[in-house]
Design a protein around this nucleic acid. Structure first.
Lengths: 159, 159
DNA sequence: GCGATAAGTCAACATAGCTGACCCTTTTTG
DNA sequence: CAAAAAGGGTCAGCTATGTTGACTTATCGC
């Protein structure tokens, strides 16, 4: 008897993930385009908003992009008054990042669009689905990264 | 009493989706980079493989990109022998697309990587989670698009 | 004082999207 | 049947976002 090394390809979940993620990011994309920003700006704004006082090098670690790539979008966000930088108190080489009230407002607006889609989806599903979905997505993350993600999510939501 | 228009932002699911999708696409990305391809090639190869005899305009509809953007990657895939084009029998203006055996093999290899992650995840979850996840992802898709996605997934898996 | 670290910057390049303007072939339509 | 429409291809140029590599400045820690 032949021993199969794995079941059939899960084209269903592969394709569902593709289309679901496309539409999930489509909502904010529309708004961002209107103000001349892209998805890169969204990511920076989001993670700075969620981690006030973040160091530049920590942000690079989260986004896994280079200093030069970050530099371009971060400079725009700072110039446009969405993000501010403050020297670290202990270590004055650091530029601790945080959103301005305007930046926070934009971030909330973008999060609202995505939350709306999520809430509308979950409202159509049986009770308890929420936890199953969270668990699935969490376990889809590289094991080495799960701790950091869990820590960020556990933070109080300073909206 | 103030009536809230919505619950708090779902930062947990927003962030889980971001990181899960990043790692989900990271597996094939590594392999693709080795052969000089990007995620754009993967998408074209995947959808042609899943929909043999697809017309170019149908592919544009699925990917929602322009003819010119598609042209670049499609040309490479054809030149490299992963995809072939055949004139339509009824309408000879059409160029019906299908993968070659080599193209199918590459596609399977890439699908294997993603399926592995999915299967390992689901193996850690309670029975029945599978259906909840499928339902969630399906409902996250724009309502107008769901029919087309469901139809594609329902196809027999000619791996 | 000196090497390491945090951050910023300049230049050049690649990928993958876009618009606009054309062309060729084939089908459809008046 | 001639003209319009449709399927597909291609050229040129632009934008967004990622990459390397090299260098500067300020500050920290030993």
């Amino acid at each position: 008897m032949v021993l199969k090394t794995q079941k059939e390809p899960r084209f269903d979940l592969i394709e569902l993930l593709f289309f679901a993620y496309r539409d999930f990011t489509g909502d904010p994309d529309t708004l961002l385009t209107e103000i001349g920003y892209g998805r890169a700006h969204h990511r920076v704004l989001h993670f700075v908003n969620r981690n006030p006082g973040l160091r530049v090098s920590d942000l690079l670690e989260i986004l896994k992009i280079t200093k030069q790539s970050l530099g371009r979008v971060l400079k725009q966000l700072v110039d446009d008054g969405y993000i501010e930088q403050a020297p670290g108190e202990q270590d004055r080489r650091e530029r601790l990042l945080h959103t301005t009230p305007t930046g926070n407002a934009l971030c909330k607006k973008l999060a609202y669009l995505q939350t709306k889609r999520i809430n509308e989806t979950i409202a159509k599903m049986p009770d308890g689905s929420d936890e199953t979905i969270r668990q699935f997505l969490y376990l889809m993350i590289d094991e080495s990264q799960r701790g950091a993600v869990a820590a960020m999510i556990a933070k109080k939501q300073k909206t």
